[in-house]
């Protein structure tokens, strides 16, 4: 068997996930629709009175306007990460779906790629729904705002690959608590989501710079409001590089896990 074997046949697995998703799409739709609304209500309306305006990239923004793009970005992260951890793990371990697929002309790379691309698709869908919500609130400048949709896909590939890597190495489904607690939660809180990174001391800014979510948040602010505090090229390169590294790590971990 070749070391790396990928063809467009992976789309058949992606389609399988789409068919399952469509069966309960109304329920699936609710989460990305309502979750950011809850956050916007709690933080934007509840907290903004206490906080007042936020200075970001030299501009005064209301707190709700500041966090709206960040909530979109975190939703991109959560959707892909959940899909390639909990959901993929169930398919792989409990449902033996991958075992069945690997008796057909599908390669391991195709199965894993399809799962990650599916996670990215979920992210893109969440990005689209939230983009609509924050557009209604008047926080999006068009036509650039539309680029948030492909950005959601790129972010989904990055966090989906990271999730799939964890799926390749966790011994049991409960162990996902560990990457959730040690990786995803800190990313969620310290990536310029709820406060500007520019207000942090140097080491804090440095740490935020390693966070893929920070770069996704920055790019989302750029595309929705036209302003950001860092360079868009560095952020795009970082996200792409992060996605690629974890994609290959995920394939390697899954090969080790599944092929005996």
């Amino acid at each position: 068997m070749k070391r790396f074997d990928l063809s467009l046949l992976f789309l058949s697995v992606w389609k399988r996930n789409l068919i399952v998703y469509r069966r309960i799409w109304k329920v699936n739709f609710m989460v990305p629709l309502f979750e950011p609304l809850f956050y916007l209500a709690a933080f934007g309306i509840g907290l903004s009175g206490l906080i007042g305006d936020v200075v970001y990239a030299g501009q005064d923004l209301s707190y709700i306007q500041f966090i709206a793009p960040a909530l979109l970005a975190t939703s991109v992260m959560f959707n892909a990460f959940f899909e390639t951890t909990f959901s993929s793990f169930v398919r792989m371990y409990y449902q033996k779906t991958f075992d069945a697929m690997l008796s057909t002309p599908l390669s391991l790379e195709e199965v894993i790629t399809a799962e990650i691309v599916w996670g990215a698709t979920m992210s893109m869908l969440a990005a689209t729904i939230i983009l609509f919500i924050i557009s209604v609130l008047g926080f999006v400048v068009y036509p650039w705002g539309l680029l948030v949709i492909p950005l959601g896909f790129l972010g989904g590939l990055a966090f989906g690959s990271m999730g799939m890597f964890f799926t390749g190495i966790v011994p049991s489904i409960n162990m996902f608590n560990l990457p959730m607690f040690l990786v995803v939660t800190p990313l969620f809180l310290f990536s310029g989501t709820f406060f500007p990174v520019s207000g942090l001391p140097f080491w804090g800014q440095y740490l935020a710079g390693i966070s893929p979510l920070y770069h996704l948040v920055e790019l989302t602010r750029l595309l929705t409001m036209g302003i950001m505090e860092s360079s868009p090229f560095i952020s795009i390169a970082y996200l792409t590089g992060f996605a690629l590294v974890f994609y290959f790590l995920a394939i390697r971990a899954m090969r080790k896990r599944l092929i005996k």
Binding site: L9, Q95, A100
Partner: peptide, 25 residues
């Protein structure tokens, strides 16, 4: 036909066959 039940529990009986056919192009 593997030893364990590897049918797709997320799909109906009919869809199990149709989706599997997709893996064979």
């Amino acid at each position: 036909c593997q030893q364990e039940n590897t049918l797709d529990p997320d799909l109906s009986v009919e869809k199990n066959l149709l989706v599997f056919a997709g893996y064979y192009k």
